[in-house]
Simulated assay, not measured.
Amino acid sequence: MNKESKGNVVSELSELLNSSKATFLADYRGMDVEAVNKLRGELRQVGVDYRVAKNTLLRIAAKGTAAECLESHLQGPTAVAFASDDVAAPAKVLADLAKDSKFFELKGGVMDGKPLSVEDIKALANLPSREVLLGKMLGSINAPATNFVGVLAAVPRSLVQVLAAIQEQKAA
């Protein structure tokens, strides 16, 4: 790799580190091509850019970014997953693979400038997806209005039931 192509890789990695909400590092040593391609496909479906990077180039690219704290994890083969939208979905894919595969091991990550340990990534993986959380929040917001409408409807319903009971009593 010549100096110009290394510079291009560093600038591309730096741009990805700056634009991503979360970055996850993993050791992929021993994985076969089929497993890596399957992982890339799964991560692509959740909107994640997955790359294998040289540690020295990644170290240079991380200088001055929020991912600078990842320098201690840059040893051995390093795969990087850049999550730009939902951070729980890629954490789930990576944590599941790390649990199922003896060749794939999470190293750490960074989210919004804060370093993430392997345990933090596993905790993120256990969170429901963004859509589920939004649905729960909307349900919570909607519940008081629904209950209020039920209370308002109960008053005329009770009046109608009382009138119906009086009518039945007079008819008998």
Rank of each mutant, 00 (worst) to 15 (best):
E71R: 07
K54L: 14
I141A: 09
V118A: 04
A66W: 03
L94V: 09
G7W: 08
N2D: 08
R29A: 06
A145F: 12
V33S: 01
L138T: 06
Q45V: 03
L124Y: 01
S14K: 13
S11Y: 10
G109W: 12
K107S: 10
A66K: 07
T146S: 13
A35N: 03
S140V: 13
N2Q: 06
L133H: 11
G64W: 01
T23K: 13
Q161L: 08
R29H: 06
E119C: 02
Q75V: 10
V93S: 05
S117I: 00
E119W: 09
G135C: 13
L17P: 10
S140A: 13
G150V: 14
L17D: 13
N126M: 02
T65F: 04
A53G: 14
L124M: 02
M1V: 06
I141T: 11
I141L: 14
Q45Y: 00
R29M: 01
A88T: 03
L133C: 06
V110M: 11
L127K: 05
K114D: 15
N142R: 15
N18H: 10
L138E: 08
Q45S: 05
V151M: 08
Q167D: 04
L70E: 00
A171M: 14
L163G: 10
K21F: 13
D27M: 02
V33K: 09
K63F: 08
R130L: 13
I141C: 14
L16P: 12
A83V: 02
V155L: 09
L106V: 10
A26W: 07
E34I: 03
S11A: 11
L97Q: 14
A26M: 04
K21Q: 15
L97H: 07
G41D: 00
P144V: 11
P90C: 02
V93W: 05
L57P: 15
R51P: 07
A95C: 10
V132D: 05
R130C: 04
R29W: 02
A26D: 00
K122L: 04
V149I: 12
L133G: 00
K102C: 06
S101D: 05
M1S: 05
E4Q: 07
A88C: 08
N142Y: 12
K99A: 10
K6R: 02
A165T: 05
V93N: 06
N8V: 07
L127C: 02
D85W: 01
E68R: 04
Q167G: 05
E168T: 06
S101R: 00
S5V: 07
K114S: 12
D32Y: 07
A172I: 13
V160S: 10
T65E: 04
K21S: 12
A123D: 03
S19K: 12
A171P: 11
M111Y: 10
F104V: 03
P77Y: 02
V52E: 07
V151L: 08
V93D: 02
N147M: 11
Y50N: 02
V46I: 05
L163H: 10
G41H: 00
A22G: 15
D112Y: 13
A153E: 11
L16C: 11
G139F: 06
N37D: 01
V87T: 01
K102E: 07
V151Q: 10
L58W: 12
S72N: 14
N55E: 11
A171H: 15
G30C: 04
E168G: 03
L159M: 09
P128V: 07
L152W: 07
M1T: 01
S20W: 10
E68F: 03
S158L: 00
L152A: 07
N55L: 15
